[in-house]
Amino acid sequence: MEYFGRVLFEEQEAVLKLVKEWALATGKYAVEKNIPLEKALGTLPIYRSVIWDVFTRELEEHQFAAITMLHVSERIDPLLDTVTCIFGQIYDEHNRYMMNLAYTSLEELSVPLVPVTKGIAIMPIIGEIDTHRSQVIMETCLKKGTSLQLAYLILDISGVVIIDTMVADNLFKIHQALKLVGVEAIITGIRPEIAQTVVKLGINFNQIKTEANLEAALLKIGFRRSEEHRPTHLSSRRIK
């Protein structure tokens, strides 16, 4: 209420600057306290109503000219409109941030990396592999591959619907990136119909190690389920 009184006697721009600072601080506080936007804005009509009740009484008691009330409106209304606008912007930015956070979390869940034992992990890939998702897969593989000190990462694509030249190129890039950080990538789960498509399109998988399924890949790198056959994947033997 102080600013509404000051704007009648001081420079409007100076008071408007103070109002913006107050609105930013108050809006951020409301967001932090999870106060709904409609509740945060609910006080503004009350301010407007109280202000005009006061000036209406003054008009009746002192016989102010109507033009005076118009001038008052021209100075006070922009302050209220500014607060409304800033509150809306703050809540919009917060909602966008939360949506991006949720989207990022969903992306990470869509490419889970599951450790099997020390040095070995599996990443089941389901659905389409477009350019954006392949980037997410690569970032997850490199980050987790390094942090978990993986020697082998099995990429199971049995849930991938289509493999075309773009998907194959993305898989090749992921394979090469992992190789640069010392992780041996193995592709499993290429279904018969996908294999036929790969051959028809002339896609070259020669530089990528593949196995029929997860079990075959694990056996290839020396992993055994029984205690008497301990994993040999951390020895000097590599896939040939």
Rank of each mutant, 00 (worst) to 15 (best):
50 V>C: 01
50 V>I: 12
51 I>E: 07
51 I>S: 01
51 I>A: 13
53 D>M: 13
53 D>R: 14
54 V>F: 10
54 V>H: 12
55 F>R: 04
55 F>W: 14
59 L>R: 14
59 L>W: 11
60 E>L: 09
60 E>W: 00
61 E>I: 13
61 E>F: 04
61 E>M: 05
61 E>N: 09
62 H>C: 03
62 H>D: 08
63 Q>G: 12
64 F>E: 00
65 A>F: 09
66 A>S: 12
66 A>Q: 06
67 I>F: 09
67 I>P: 00
68 T>C: 00
69 M>K: 04
70 L>S: 09
70 L>K: 15
71 H>T: 14
71 H>M: 03
72 V>L: 06
73 S>P: 01
74 E>Y: 14
75 R>P: 05
76 I>L: 04
76 I>T: 01
76 I>Y: 00
76 I>Q: 00
78 P>S: 13
80 L>I: 13
80 L>R: 08
80 L>K: 08
81 D>M: 06
82 T>Y: 00
82 T>I: 07
83 V>F: 03
84 T>V: 15
84 T>P: 00
85 C>N: 09
86 I>P: 05
86 I>R: 06
87 F>Q: 05
88 G>A: 08
88 G>H: 11
88 G>N: 09
89 Q>D: 08
90 I>R: 01
91 Y>L: 02
91 Y>I: 03
92 D>N: 13
92 D>W: 15
92 D>K: 12
93 E>H: 12
93 E>K: 15
93 E>N: 11
93 E>T: 14
94 H>L: 00
94 H>Y: 12
94 H>C: 04
95 N>I: 13
95 N>T: 13
96 R>K: 11
96 R>T: 12
97 Y>W: 04
97 Y>R: 13
97 Y>E: 02
98 M>Y: 10
98 M>D: 02
99 M>C: 04
99 M>Q: 11
99 M>H: 10
100 N>D: 10
101 L>I: 02
101 L>V: 10
104 T>F: 01
104 T>N: 11
105 S>G: 08
106 L>F: 03
106 L>M: 07
107 E>C: 14
107 E>R: 15
108 E>M: 15
109 L>T: 11
110 S>H: 12
110 S>C: 11
110 S>T: 14
111 V>H: 02
112 P>R: 11
113 L>E: 01
113 L>Y: 00
113 L>R: 02
114 V>S: 10
114 V>C: 05
114 V>F: 02
115 P>Y: 13
115 P>W: 07
116 V>Q: 02
117 T>H: 13
117 T>P: 02
117 T>G: 04
119 G>N: 03
120 I>T: 09
121 A>L: 09
122 I>N: 01
122 I>H: 00
122 I>G: 05
122 I>D: 02
123 M>W: 06
124 P>T: 03
124 P>I: 00
124 P>L: 08
127 G>K: 08
128 E>W: 01
129 I>M: 07
129 I>A: 08
130 D>W: 01
132 H>L: 08
133 R>D: 05
133 R>N: 04
134 S>D: 01
134 S>T: 11
134 S>L: 11
134 S>P: 04
135 Q>W: 06
135 Q>E: 02
